[in-house]
């Protein structure tokens, strides 16, 4: 199975972290567990899904959107939850036809 190269940037600013962002740091572990039945190893995930932390990206100051924030290939996601991100990556990174 192919995994699409994806860039995930998790905001580790204090606001995001405190408002639920701490959970997002479990992303690799959770992905590894979730994709294991499809024969995807943690190494394969780390090779294709590039997860990094970023200092406050400034969105916590804007009204309208709520932390925690992360971007997936540049696209901003607010009020991010681990479950939501997992589902998003399922749909966007795995080649569903194989």
């Amino acid at each position: 199975m192919r995994i699409k190269e994806t860039d995930v940037r998790i905001c580790t600013g204090t606001a995001c972290f405190v408002m639920g962002g701490a959970d997002l740091l479990l992303l690799v572990e959770e992905l590894a567990e979730r994709w294991e039945p499809r024969g995807i190893t943690r190494e394969m995930i780390e090779g294709c899904i590039h997860i990094s932390g970023s200092p406050c990206i400034g969105h916590c100051r804007e009204s309208g959107l709520r932390p925690p924030f992360l971007t997936i290939d540049g696209q901003l996601i607010g009020e991010a939850t681990l479950e939501g991100v997992l589902a998003y990556l399922d749909a966007s990174c795995l080649d569903q036809t194989v």
Binding site: T12, G13, T14, V18, G53, P55, C56
Partner: peptide, 13 residues
């Protein structure tokens, strides 16, 4: 944490 937010302190930075 509320103090950090109010003082605008980014711990990791």
């Amino acid at each position: 944490a509320a103090c950090f937010l109010a003082w605008d302190i980014d711990v990791r930075e």
